[in-house]
């Protein structure tokens, strides 16, 4: 999906296993992952690496309008 000003990475905490695969492939160190808490910081450029690598498909780029 193409991103725009309103893009946001949505994360589904029901699906996420807090495994860190997304953190490993993020080019901009934009993911904070504590024990069971994930958040995306403002350094995100919406490259979608994290979305694609996630074993559980817990991430998605959405239009937050």
């Amino acid at each position: 999906m193409k991103h725009n000003f309103y893009s946001k990475i949505a994360y589904d905490r029901q699906l996420c296993d807090f495994c860190g695969a997304c953190v490993a492939v993020c080019p901009h160190d934009a993911i904070e992952l504590a024990e069971a808490d994930l958040s995306i910081t403002e350094s995100c450029t919406f490259c979608a690496n994290c979305v694609h690598v996630c074993p559980m498909r817990a991430l998605e780029i959405i239009d937050a309008r």
Partner: peptide, 12 residues
């Protein structure tokens, strides 16, 4: 230290 998409094995 970033892992390239071709170099990570993503697992379940």
């Amino acid at each position: 230290t970033r892992t390239k998409m071709g170099d990570i094995e993503t697992c379940a």
